[in-house]
């Protein structure tokens, strides 16, 4: 496992390689080498099983982070390839030619985060939502509570009890509070 990571670090001068476990490692690579690295691992190092592809919205540093998680069934090791996209131009080279299931992942990410994968089969089709006009709903700058408030008719006078305190008042109204009081409001 170390040998592989060593080799790809030199080859693609990766920055911080993290060994989560002895059979799990994460590497970060520049955007333009990401797909090449994934293809290299798939073809040269028998990482033949594509586990998942996910995306994280680092709104603070203005970046989307894409993660490709691959698994090598022979050595029984996983490797995660992280790349960073600039939030202002959310476009990434499509990897649909490597595995078929990537089509769906990319379609989901396109709908959720608005990252476009040009060339990926029917990437623009609805994934879950029908007739969604707002900005992609998984972006952190999208305020879901406000949207719900605005569009669906919230019933007035609805409030949430914190289950822990509410049940204690209901069941043991006059018992002394032993546990530490949590401050959720």
């Amino acid at each position: 496992m170390k040998a592989i990571v060593q080799e790809i670090t030199e080859k693609y001068n990766l920055q911080n390689a993290v060994f989560q476990r002895d059979n799990m490692a994460f590497v970060e690579v520049e955007k333009k080498f990401a797909i090449d690295l994934v293809t290299f691992l798939k073809d040269y190092h028998q990482f033949s099983h594509f586990v998942m592809m996910s995306c994280v919205d680092w709104i603070e540093d203005g970046q989307f982070q894409l993660l490709y998680l691959l698994h090598n069934p022979a050595l029984k090791v996983d490797i995660g390839i992280k790349t960073y996209l600039n939030r202002t131009e959310p476009v990434m080279q499509s990897a649909h030619h490597l595995w078929k299931q990537i089509w769906t992942y990319q379609r989901e990410i396109k709908e959720a985060f608005g990252i476009d994968f040009p060339g990926s089969p029917n990437v623009d089709e609805n994934f879950v939502l029908e007739g969604w006009t707002e900005i992609p709903h998984m972006r952190r700058d999208f305020d879901t509570a406000a949207y719900s408030e605005k569009t669906y008719f919230p019933r007035e006078g609805r409030f949430t009890h914190d289950p822990a305190t509410y049940m204690r008042e209901k069941l043991y109204p006059n018992q002394p509070v032993t546990a530490k009081k949590n401050t959720n409001e």
Partner: peptide, 19 residues
């Protein structure tokens, strides 16, 4: 269906059915 329940703040579920 009454007031949105635990999905009251979800972007895709309705809150009051009788509307």
């Amino acid at each position: 269906t009454i007031n949105g329940g635990m999905y009251y703040d979800s972007y895709s579920t309705i809150n009051r059915l009788d509307k």
